[in-house]
């Protein structure tokens, strides 16, 4: 549903609708990636299970006639070797799926969407893991500094990482790279996400945080990623800026204060107040 659709009685805020559309669009991409990630270990286990059954059948055939002939011993050794290899692969596959589940749990912070003292590196890592499929053709460089834990709503901050990384991915051709730098700057932490993609024309730099601003062809829920990021960051008392050298890439810089802000407000969904407030800052992006 587009925002210009007639407003329903229950939905008097078109922005809230579109925020949800944006979330669904992100979710759709996410699910496609996850399906792919799960398919690899699943494919391996599925095949191995079948091979184990075949191996067992062969062993049963050999044992059926009571005496094991010397030449059959070679066959038995071959089977044992195959089974050994299979077990090792299954270990890997199970480990992979366990990791996926733990990253998903970490990303969504099922244990609560409340305020927490979060390890941002952990949040970045689990976001990267969830985007692993999307990011495969890109090389991701991590330059992590020493970071203290940060008072924030981890689920929302992960959403910021997710949107920034997705945008970087979408701007960067296969074979390009994305660099994530973190550092502590006094009583704030800084996270910088740079890509080697198309960059942002200077005329657009001031507008990219506007809700609905997009250069992608009109798919549902587009143009809200950065508006949502801005809003989340504002509510954390932080700052989010973009810089770009057109043709050579873009850098998004996030600052979050280490001192707990008076109140980190409810999520965008629950209190869909206007984001106009953050427009004023847009000019500061042309640095």
């Amino acid at each position: 549903m587009r925002s210009d659709a007639p407003a329903d009685a229950g939905f008097d805020d078109p922005l809230a609708d579109r925020v949800n559309e944006a979330r669904l669009a992100t979710l759709g991409l996410l699910v496609a990636g996850l399906v792919h990630e799960i398919n690899t270990p699943l494919g391996a286990i599925n095949s191995n299970h079948d091979v184990l059954r075949r191996a067992l059948g062969k062993l049963q055939d050999i044992l059926a006639d009571e005496v094991v002939e010397p030449h059959e011993l070679d066959e038995v050794r071959r089977i044992v070797r195959a089974v050994d290899g299979i077990l090792r692969v299954n270990d890997l596959a199970v480990e992979r799926m366990r990791g996926l589940v733990s990253n998903l749990r970490n990303f969504g912070r099922i244990d609560g969407s409340g305020t927490d003292m979060a390890d941002l590196h952990e949040g970045i890592d689990s976001t990267l893991a969830i985007l692993a499929h999307e990011l495969r053709p890109i090389s991701v460089v991590k330059e992590f500094g020493e970071l203290p834990r940060v008072p924030c709503r981890p689920q929302q901050v992960n959403q910021v990482f997710m949107n920034l990384l997705m945008n970087a991915r979408q701007a960067t051709p296969d074979g390009g790279s994305i660099t994530i730098r973190t550092a502590r700057l006094g009583d704030a932490v800084q996270v910088q996400i740079s890509d080697t993609g198309a960059g942002i024309p200077s005329g657009q730099l001031g507008r990219i945080f506007e809700p609905g601003f997009t250069t992608r062809d009109g798919r549902i829920g587009m143009g809200l990623g950065l508006a949502i990021c801005r809003q989340i960051v504002d509510r954390h008392g932080g700052r989010l800026h973009a810089a770009s050298e057109p043709g050579r890439g873009a850098t998004f810089t996030l600052h979050l204060p280490l001192v707990q802000p008076p109140r980190i407000e409810e999520t965008v969904q629950r209190s869909p107040d206007r984001t106009e407030a953050s427009h004023d800052e847009a000019n500061s992006d042309t640095r």
Partner: peptide, 12 residues
């Protein structure tokens, strides 16, 4: 994982 699984099957 995939190359090893395919190998196990084909070799068996």
């Amino acid at each position: 994982m995939v190359t090893a699984a395919l190998r196990s099957f084909l070799e068996l």
